[in-house]
Every structure is written in structure tokens, then in C-alpha cells.
């Protein structure tokens, strides 16, 4: 079985190589030899990432753990809820989106106690809205 640290090393090495052969040449202006060369740090980062990825492949430690499938699924659900909330924010405004996000959290957390559910669903969005919009005068949409 392949060690998890070694797989991460392969990913890091691949990213470093991608950086050096595709991302830096295409998305950074290079002026070789000039002390102000904008590509110096991106290239240096690429070489360091690739070298360290290689070092991690070679020096991988046994027994590195990876998250369980159920945890990854839950993670994807929460991130999905956040992305949807961010997309809907300009259209619906903060309070409806925040209530929706809290509802999604309650469903994912399987909270069934009415008092705590109501606090999360209504109390928390109103508190955050009052804090930013009223007390700190920072608009939220």
C-alpha cells in the first residue's frame, strides 16, 4: 500500500513542475538577469516546492492518516453550502442567505432541539447582521 505522505509528495512535486513549466512561463513576465525580475520569486517557489515534494517522496513517514470518507462528504456539503450562499448573496441579500446557510448547517448537524435550532436559524443571522450593519456600519450586501 502506498504511503499517504508519499502520495502528497507526488502531488506537491507535480504541482511544482506544473508551476515551472506552465504557470510561471504563461502567467508571469520574466526579465532574466535583471535584479527586478518579476519571475524570480515564483520560479524560486516552484523549484522549492518541486524539491521538497521530491524530498517528501523519499523521506515519507509511515502511518500518515487520511480523513475518512464520511468526513470528506460532510466537508464537501459544508463547502458547497458556503459557495451557494456566496453566489446567492448579491441576489438575495445577507439575512435570507444567512438563514439559509444556518438551516443547511442545522440539517447537516441533525440538530433537533427546537430552542437551539431557533437560536441558530434566526438569532445568529440577526446578531451578525446587527453587529456589522448597525454597530460597525459595514454593509453586508
Amino acid at each position: 500500500m502506498i504511503n499517504a505522505d508519499r502520495i502528497q509528495g507526488i502531488v506537491v512535486l507535480a504541482f511544482g513542475i506544473t508551476l515551472l513549466v506552465w504557470l510561471v512561463p504563461n502567467y508571469v513576465t520574466a526579465v532574466p538577469g535583471d535584479p527586478l525580475d518579476p519571475s524570480l520569486f515564483p520560479r524560486a517557489a516552484g523549484w522549492i516546492i518541486a524539491a521538497l515534494g521530491l524530498a517528501q517522496i523519499v523521506l515519507a513517514r509511515p502511518g500518515a492518516s487520511v480523513p475518512a470518507g464520511r468526513e470528506i462528504l460532510g466537508f464537501v456539503c459544508f463547502i458547497g453550502a458556503l459557495v451557494v450562499a456566496a453566489l446567492l448573496l448579491p441576489m438575495l441579500g445577507f439575512l435570507p442567505v444567512a438563514c439559509g446557510l444556518m438551516m443547511a448547517s442545522l440539517v447537516l448537524l441533525r440538530e433537533r432541539r427546537p430552542l437551539w435550532a431557533a437560536t441558530t436559524l434566526i438569532g445568529v443571522p440577526v446578531f451578525v447582521w446587527v453587529l456589522f450593519t448597525v454597530l460597525l456600519s459595514r454593509p453586508l450586501s
Binding site: 459544508f78 458556503l82 450562499a85 456566496a86 445577507f94 444567512a98 446557510l101 444556518m102 448547517s105 442545522l106 448537524l109 440538530e111 432541539r113 437551539w116 435550532a117 437560536t119 441558530t120 445568529v124 443571522p125 446578531f127 451578525v128 447582521w129 453587529l131 456589522f132 453586508l140
Partner: peptide, 16 residues
């Protein structure tokens, strides 16, 4: 305090 209030509240504060 229950985590079902604390964590979603922290999440919404991060969002805002």
C-alpha cells in the same frame, strides 16, 4: 454552550 449554535455562528461571522 452547544456546538450546534457556536460553530454555525462562527461560520457566519467568517462569512460576513
Amino acid at each position: 454552550a452547544p456546538g450546534t449554535v457556536i460553530y454555525p455562528a462562527a461560520m457566519l461571522l467568517c462569512f460576513a
